[in-house]
Each structure stands twice: as structure tokens, then as C-alpha cells.
């Protein structure tokens, strides 16, 4: 349902897409990179289960003598925190995409809550591409970074933690050659 590597995606378009422009490749960070928000949210989810034992061990069991409505409110705040970390994590992963179209390379970044950055480079301006993989998780799950050097105002476009980086790098170069007729 939420793939990170889609060739010729249907039902997907982006802001500024031309009528004749076809999306050839849609990329997101590998799903395993979502562990960086899944693990904290799981830990916060489990906090209420360990709080009573924690306070009892420290001898502060009286803190738990608050009226039940207050304890419920604190519990609600805890789970709202879990909800917002999960939702923000998902949004950040789902909408930070890298798109290769028949004309351009597009890098859509939502770095913070209200900050949007779109890097766009024509395929004909691509000079070279490189890919790198490093680390245990990258090797196991086959993901890494792709760096695209361009001749335009945007000096480089970086695809961070995308699946099959070598294949993506080769794909972009192949498309560039097609446009250039070489």
C-alpha cells in the first residue's frame, strides 16, 4: 500500500507536473528507516505500564494517589504524544519523495512542520550519478543514497536512503542518455 520504490506509478501526480510529463520512478526512503520514529513511539506507548512499578521502587507511590480523572488526563497526554510522533513520522516518510519523470528529477522535502523545499532539475542537465551504501541495515535491506550532479542552478540532488540505490543511479543515467540521444 505504501511502497518506497514504484516504477511508472499510476494515480500519482505532483505540483507543477506538465500534461506531457510522465512519472517514471517514484522513490521514498526505505521503510526500515521509519524505525527511528517507531521505536521512540513504542517506548512512550509502554511508559504508563512501567510508571507504577518505577515510582513504587523509588518510594514515591503517593504520586499515584492523584484523582482518577487527573491520572486519565496524564494518560491521554501520553497517548496523544504517541499519536503525534507516529503521524508526523508517517507524514514525513510518505510525502518526502524523489521523482524521476520523463523530463525532470524532482526532490520534494518537508523538513519541518511548515517548511517545504522542492529541487527540480531537468534530466538533460544531469552530468553524472553516484550511489553509496553503508552500514549494517543498508546492506541487509539494500538501501542507500544516490547523488545526482547537475549542470544547473541546483548543483546536486540527493536521494537519501532509497531502495536499490545502484539501480536508481543507473536508471537516471539511462533516462539522461535517452533524452540526450546517446
Amino acid at each position: 500500500m505504501f511502497p518506497a520504490y514504484v516504477e511508472n506509478p499510476s494515480n500519482i501526480s505532483f505540483e507543477g507536473q506538465d500534461q506531457s510529463e510522465i512519472i517514471l520512478l517514484l522513490l521514498r526512503a526505505h521503510p526500515i528507516t521509519n524505525l527511528k520514529w517507531i521505536i521512540p513511539s513504542l517506548l512512550i506507548f509502554l511508559i504508563p505500564f512501567f510508571i507504577p512499578a518505577f515510582f513504587n521502587n523509588l518510594g514515591f507511590e503517593d504520586i499515584l494517589n492523584l484523582p482518577p480523572t487527573y491520572l486519565s488526563a496524564l494518560l491521554v497526554i501520553n497517548y496523544l504524544l504517541v499519536l503525534v510522533i507516529t503521524f508526523e513520522g508517517f507524514l514525513h516518510w510518505y510525502f518526502n519523495v524523489y521523482i524521476v519523470t520523463s523530463k525532470n528529477i524532482v526532490d520534494v522535502d518537508f523538513n519541518s512542520i511548515l517548511f517545504k523545499n522542492i529541487d527540480l532539475a531537468p534530466l538533460k542537465n544531469v552530468e553524472d550519478t553516484s550511489s553509496s551504501m553503508g552500514g549494517i541495515l543498508s546492506s541487509i535491506f539494500n538501501y542507500g543514497d544516490v547523488f545526482v550532479q547537475t549542470a544547473g542552478a541546483v548543483k546536486s540532488i540527493d536521494f537519501i536512503s532509497v531502495p536499490n540505490p545502484h539501480k536508481v543511479s543507473d536508471f537516471i543515467l539511462d533516462q539522461t542518455h535517452k533524452i540526450g540521444g546517446t
Binding site: 494515480n11 500519482i12 501526480s13 505532483f14 505540483e15 497526554i77 496523544l80 503525534v84 503521524f87 508526523e88 507524514l91 510525502f95 519523495v97 520534494v108 518537508f110 512542520i113 511548515l114 517545504k116 522542492i118
Partner: peptide, 21 residues
């Protein structure tokens, strides 16, 4: 939290307009 939640609505709106899925 409510202010943050309202900002998220704005953010999602912006994201939805940028990447239409």
C-alpha cells in the same frame, strides 16, 4: 497540542497539494 494539531492540518494540506495521491 491543539495548536500543533492545527498546524499539522495545514501541513497535510500543503503536502497533499504537492504530491497528489
Amino acid at each position: 497540542y491543539a495548536i500543533f494539531a492545527l498546524l499539522i492540518v495545514r501541513q497535510v494540506d500543503l503536502m497533499g497539494k504537492t504530491l497528489i495521491t
